[in-house]
Structure formats: C-alpha cells, structure tokens
Design a protein around this nucleic acid. Structure first.
Lengths: 257, 257
DNA sequence: CGTTAACTTGATAGCATTCAACTAGCGTGG
DNA sequence: CCACGCTAGTTGAATGCTATCAAGTTAACG
C-alpha cells in the first residue's frame, strides 16, 4: 500500500523532525493541548518530505492520495476549475497548515492543490493519521479542530464573494493574510509576504486580474497598503479593517474560541 | 454547567429516540461504520429536544452554546450578516444534518443559525459529544467526516459564487438540494421541498431577489424546472446539471469517496 | 539585451443591481 | 364573508459595477 519513505541521511531526517516540531507541532498545539506523548507520536509519524517548484501542482482534482500534506515552507493554494477553464482559488496556505486533510476520510479529492512559491511539504500517511487519531484524543481534537477552523474560513470567504464589493473583498483578503501570517510566525501583521500574482488574487476573490489591479491601486491611493514585489505592507491597519469589514473571530486563533 | 434535560413523558422520550435513530443514526452511518455499541452510545446521549418556529433564529452570531443541534424535522440555514444589513446564507440544512458542530470546539459562533420552516431539533451537549468522540473511534470518524463534507460543500459554493453566472448558480443550487434531499430521505431527486423564498435564494447565491426571480423564470422557460409553492420539480435533470455544471462528487455521499 | 510574464491603462460592453410599481396569495378580523 | 394588510412574487426602466478587449509598460531573468 504505502510506498516506503525515501531514505534520508540522518542529518536530513533530524532537520525534518525539527521543522515538523517548529511548524506543525506549533500549529496543532494551538488547537488542543497535547501531552508530551502525543507530541512524540506526531513527530514520530513516518513522513515523506517532498519539494515542489513554484506554481507546480501538488495534487490534482479527482486524484486520490495516500497521505495528507503538512506545509513546512512556502505558500500553497487550493483551487477548483470550471469547464470553461476559469479557476476559483479556495484558500491560501501558510507553513503549519495541514492542507489535504480531506483525503484522509473522503477519498477522491474534489479540488486541486498547487504551490504558489517553491514549497517544502511533509506527507503524513493516512493510516498513520488515523491510527494517531484513534489512539490519542488530543491529536483527534487537533485534527478535527483544524478542519473546523478551515470550514470557518470558507464561510467567511463565502460572505466575501457573495456580499462584499471588489474593494472590500481585496481589503478583507489582505487583512486575513496579515493576521494569519503573523499567527503562523512567517511575518508581521503589518508586513508580510503574499506571493500571489494579481491573476491569482483575482481567482481568489472572484474578480478579473484587471479589476484586481485597479482595486489595489485604489487601496494604495487611499493610503491603506503598499506593495513591493510580493511583500505587502499595511500602512493603515484600521482603515483596511474598516474597508474590508474584517473581524478576525472566524479565524479562531485562540484555542478557546 | 449543563442544565438538566427537560422532563419528558416516557412516550415522548421514546418517540425522540426513534427519530434520532431514523434521522441522525442514518446520517452518521453514512460517514463511518458504527458498531452496535457506538450506535447505542449515540442514541443514549442526553439530548434536549427543541421546536423552533419558521423563520425564527436558533442561534445568533457571536453566541456560545453548550450543545450542537441535530436537525430532526424541517429545514434550517446558516448565515452571516454584514454591517450594512446584507446577509449571506452559507448553507441549507436537511433532517439528519448536525448543524452547529463548530461550537463543540470553537467557542463563540462566527455565524447565525435559523429555521426556514418550523423545525424540530435535538441538542447534543458538547461534553457528551466530546466524551463519545474520545471513547469511540467510529463516532469520532463520523463527526469528523461530517465536518469534512460540510467544508467540501462550502468549497463548491465558493466556486459557485466566485466563478459561475446567475443562471448556473441557481441551477447548481437546485441540483445540490435535489441530490441532498434524496440522500436525506426527504424527497426525490426530481421532486423535493425547498421552502426558501426568492429572497433567501438570493442571499444564498449572492444575488438580488429580483434577479433570482428573473433567473428562475428563465430556468422554467427553458423547461428545466417547475415550482409549485415550495415544491421544486425538476423537469429536465440532464439539462439542469449542464446548466449548473453540477458534479456531485463534492457531496461525498459514498462513505468511500 | 532580448524575451516573457506580470502589471497597467483606456475604451467599450454587459450582467446584475437598484428603484419603483404592481399583482397575487393568504390569514385575520370586523 | 369579504375587506384589509402583509408578504412573496413579478415586471419595467435606468444605473452601475465589473468584465472584456486591446495595447502599452515594466520587471524579471537567462
């Protein structure tokens, strides 16, 4: 069934474990208090590391996989395609996110997964996930809560696409990515990397690239944000929050709420 | 902590248990094979029954609750509001759906919950859910998978709102509700109840009531659907599927995929 | 320094919204 | 029993936000 994990130099294996601890354990701990034994179980999982080039697919819609991906480095996104070729980006992902957890219980993937930048992922075999979940309630809670928070983010995006205009949509997306970047430890709320092209931002916000461009110009002109390459600097947090109607409750960043 | 369940006549309690078995157990069993012991645990949960009038709120955004609701009879929906009063409906719910599962691990609700018709729900206390999940892996899988499928539906709705035009959006929604009604055992794929006003359909599809009206007229004119009151009859399933670009994979109705 | 992708700009077109009436259905009460 | 009043549904005209089309500009990179 599961192909054996590739052979790693001891030093590589050690580096991978450290990265898992720093990125993955950190994220899981925000969901549920983990006992030391549970943390050890997570770190001892037989992960398969994999590097993917920027813009390359990680998993295609309709495919099955035998493991879920933990994003260790880089940015990734999930998407769906329409028959006419148009694309909807469903979510952006930062280090620590478990991206393909659906596949653990759902079989055929109903969406695609791709790298935004060069990406380093670790694949957790489904059987290892299910075994860990069955044996440890803290791990079960953490995975379940990861799914619940993800669903909450989808709900907020539904509101964004369904009821906010272009200006608010882009502002809201920037607010979310700012807060999540800081929470993931890969940036600050007022200065972070968002390595998405305007086309990709368009596919995330249900707009066209041209209109994303004009909208960003307005946001810059209004003194709310500045961009330099893929770096976003938020010049007026309060103004951006107002513009986007942003309320971070739905991110459920505190284990309690 | 948890207020005691209201006193029930034995016959009422018995009726409630039967309904739970028919509706809730049925749904949970589609997610994971449950042992007899697990089924018993689910049915023995200390549920609080509650009846809500049509259009009445069940749970408001920002509220906390001490239990999740299983929908036993009637239709419900979840929604978010914007400061300007506009509303986005996030999902429609049919009997068997566990509607407020988020609250079990997330604390403050990030969205509202309301009845579409007169509704009969059973509230499962969070501590009972968490205890059952911790003790029984089949139950844990079933709840987790319910959340995963729900997230998959949100993703499809994102595609709907972000990348489909009005005609396809409405067609897609009707396809989804047809398939789900049949799966829930409350209708057939070609004839089912959708007790939503055109305003509510508009809030679900990110449109205005006026445009929903015109779009439904086109769908009727094209011979795809007929409506009589809140009953939807699908006159040309194939045509509606094409119009909406509907592919039921994302509903994950088969435990395997 | 040529080539390509990303970004920017302007003009035009169109889908959906907004505004404003009007009709139909239905429960309630005089 | 029918008028009343409310809600849902329908229709028409005008506006507007966003898409589309088409070029031009900048930036990244080998």
């Amino acid at each position: 069934m599961t192909p054996p994990p590739p052979i790693l130099e001891d030093s590589d294996a050690e580096a991978l474990r450290l990265q898992l601890a720093r990125v993955f354990l950190r994220k899981m701990s925000t969901h549920a208090p983990l006992t030391e034994a549970e943390a050890d179980v997570l770190l001892a999982m037989p992960v398969r590391p994999r590097r993917i080039a920027a813009r390359a697919p990680i998993l295609l819609e309709g495919a099955t996989s035998d493991g879920a991906y933990v994003l260790l480095e880089g940015h990734a996104y999930r998407f769906k395609l329409l028959a006419d070729g148009s694309r909807q980006i469903l979510s952006f992902h930062l280090p620590g996110d478990v991206i393909d957890l659906d596949s653990a219980l759902l079989g055929v993937s109903d969406h695609g997964l791709a790298a935004l930048t060069a990406v380093h992922v670790a694949q957790l075999p489904h059987d290892a996930i299910l075994a860990a979940v069955a044996a440890h309630r803290g791990i079960a809670r953490a995975f379940w809560r990861e799914t619940l928070v993800e669903a909450a983010i989808f709900r907020e995006w539904l509101l964004n696409l369904g009821r906010r205009d272009a200006y608010a949509r882009v502002a809201h997306l920037l607010c979310e990515m700012a807060v999540r970047a800081e929470a993931a430890g890969v940036g600050r709320a007022d200065r972070f990397e968002l390595p998405a092209t305007q086309s990709e931002l368009a596919d995330a916000t249900g707009m066209t690239p041209v209109h994303v461009n004009r909208t960003l110009q307005r946001l810059r002109g209004d003194g709310l944000v500045e961009t330099r390459g893929s770096e976003v600097r938020i010049a007026n947090w309060r103004g951006l929050v107002d513009a986007g109607g942003f309320d971070p409750t739905y991110l459920h960043l505190n284990a309690g709420d």
